[in-house]
Design a protein around this nucleic acid. Structure first.
Length: 510
RNA sequence: GGGGCGGUAGCUCAAUCGGUAGAGCAUUGCCCUUUUAAGGCAAGGGUUCUGGGUUCGAGUCCCAGCCGCCUCACCA
């Protein structure tokens, strides 16, 4: 018998002993007078004399995280949410019956305690117990109290254990709640309507990513999990909701990495009457606000460096290519050269001469990036993307990679689009929305050329009813939380990241 | 999918050149009425991820597989 099984057996046995004491092993309810946090907040500052005089009575519940028995007395720490509070129990105060329950307690059990507040000799706020109940037994042992749970795989697979013993994990998900809360407040204050659009779509549009496929039996219909909510949200703008936002999951059937989880949370929003310039302004304010409200300030530590959401840089995509051009690849391009296809190709070749797989600069396959626009974007991502640590807005993108964005008035091959980078992560993407149905149809057809992709005719149809000038943006919530929480992996900010299941036969062996 | 690294007691980690698999916490028993990584005495606990191979002998070396981490590729 393994130790785990042995402990399980022993602890079930203790439940039997509890029954013999006349106690229900899993009582139905236990009313509390205070949350532990409320006790610390209200009485944490009172000294021993004041507590002695008031003799505050409390009834609380928590998970037993430490046990220090001392013969006919003992101490325990109970944890509830993010708060730990000490309990002092002695046989002459609780009586033999409740003291027998105390002796049956194990680390991890849920206990209910009634008593009064005092301070110990060492000054710690403590509940002097008068009644004790077992509320739920931990039949399996918790990870070690001092080191916590270190094994990253188990932290993800058994997140509940991680949350019990690693306060840092609880901090991250509380911060995540704060981020979403702050964002919602900001959008509602700005007159936005929160909506929910389909996650199961007959056509997966709004981004260029491989979708997950599923099937509806009654309709005998192939459906796709959405890769973006964009085309539905803009239908709502056509419908007359001038400001809409959605915070929800997108699903992309692609590789997994420290920055990519197959399902991730995206905030997308659209406002009529705006253009990309207005959204750049608002985005800077919005992210600074979220940093203040959810992370305690605009200045944060990320990867050992200061990240300041109050200090923004802005440069065009073409400027970024010139500015971050690696010296080893020769003279950096001049801005005006990037208007010339042959020049762009020369710089791409110059770049590839210093690039090597696995190195800082990895090669760019020109065949996969046939147009000058795609080549410039590939160069940008290769030379600048990872370098953009300070919060930076990169604006003006090639039309070739932006089928849903409106062209610039003075440069038809470029669009009014921007991306936001921080900590080396791409966290947002926004643009002035293309609202000419014929131009949109032309771009869809261009995009679908040679591919099996179908065109979302209903979206074109919707635009034909007239969408006012509109700007829209998407912000990756997981990555934003990473920055604000100082997390190095996206899996540290997602409660249950996707892992390969253990001990399950794989379905499609290749 | 490619490359690199890792998987040892319930947890956190050791194990020298290939030579009897250990420690702390946890667990069990006894003592202990202000401790806090409580303490004291004693005890139990191992398919070293899985399967092969080399060897007198494998946690250690070799091969294959599983799972994870990092990285590259993929990724508007």
């Amino acid at each position: 018998m393994s130790l785990d099984q042995e402990i399980y057996r022993q602890r079930r046995q203790k439940l039997e002993q509890l029954r013999e004491l006349g106690e229900a092993p899993y009582p139905h309810r236990f009313e509390r007078s205070h949350a532990l946090a409320a006790i610390v907040e209200q009485y944490g500052a009172k000294d021993a004399a004041a507590l002695e005089q008031e003799k505050v009575r409390v009834k609380i519940a928590g998970r037993v995280l430490t046990l220090r028995p001392h013969g006919k007395a003992g101490f325990a720490h109970l944890q509830q949410d993010d708060t730990r509070l000490q309990v002092y129990i002695r046989q002459d105060a609780v009586g033999e019956h409740d003291f027998a329950i105390w002796k049956l307690l194990d680390l991890g059990d849920w206990a209910g305690v009634e008593g009064w507040l005092f301070r110990t000799r060492t000054g710690e706020l403590t509940i002097h117990a008068e009644k004790l109940r077992l509320l739920a037994k931990a039949c399996l042992p918790l990870p070690e109290k001092w080191h916590g749970l270190q094994d990253v795989e188990r932290r993800y697979r058994q997140r509940y254990l991680d949350l019990i013993v690693n306060p840092e994990s609880r901090r991250v998900f509380r911060l995540r709640d704060g981020v979403v809360r702050s964002l919602r407040a900001a959008f509602h204050e700005r007159g936005y309507l929160e909506v929910e659009t389909p996650m199961m779509q007959p056509l997966a549009g709004g981004a260029a990513a491989r979708p997950f496929t599923t099937h509806h039996h009654a309709l005998d219909l192939t459906l796709y999990l959405r890769i973006a909510p964009e085309l539905y949200l803009k239908r709502l703008v056509v419908g007359g909701y001038e400001r809409v936002f959605e915070i929800n999951r997108n699903f992309r059937n692609e590789g997994i990495s420290t920055r990519h989880n197959p399902e991730f949370t995206m905030l997308e929003f659209y406002e009529a009457g705006s253009d990309y310039r207005a959204l750049m302004e608002w985005s800077e304010q919005l992210l600074a606000r979220v940093a203040r409200e959810a992370a305690g300030g605009e200045k944060l530590q990320f990867q050992g460096r200061e990240l300041n959401f109050g200090a923004w840089r802005r440069l065009s995509l073409r400027q970024a290519v010139c500015e971050y051009w690696p010296a080893a690849a020769g003279a950096a391009p001049r801005l005006e050269e990037l208007a010339d296809a042959a020049a762009v190709r020369r710089y791409l070749d110059a770049y590839n001469r210093i690039a090597a797989p696995g190195e800082r600069y990895s090669p760019i396959d020109a065949a996969q990036q046939p147009s000058p626009g795609e080549q410039i974007v590939a160069l940008f991502e290769a030379v600048a993307g990872d370098e953009l640590f300070e919060p930076t807005i990169i604006y003006d993108f090639p039309l070739a990679v932006s089928p849903l964005a409106k062209s610039k008035d003075d440069e038809p091959d470029w669009v009014e689009r921007f991306e936001i980078y921080a900590g080396g992560l791409e966290i947002a993407n926004g643009y002035s929305e293309l609202n000419d149905p014929e131009e949109q149809a032309r771009r869809f057809r261009l995009q679908a050329e040679g591919e099996a992709a179908r065109v979302d005719e209903d979206y074109i149809h919707a635009l034909a009813y007239g969408m006012p000038p509109t700007a829209g943006e998407g912000i990756g919530i997981d990555r934003l939380v990473m920055l604000l929480a100082g997390a190095v992996s996206i899996r540290d900010v997602i409660l249950f990241p996707l892992l390969r299941p253990e001990g399950v036969e794989r379905e499609d062996q290749e």
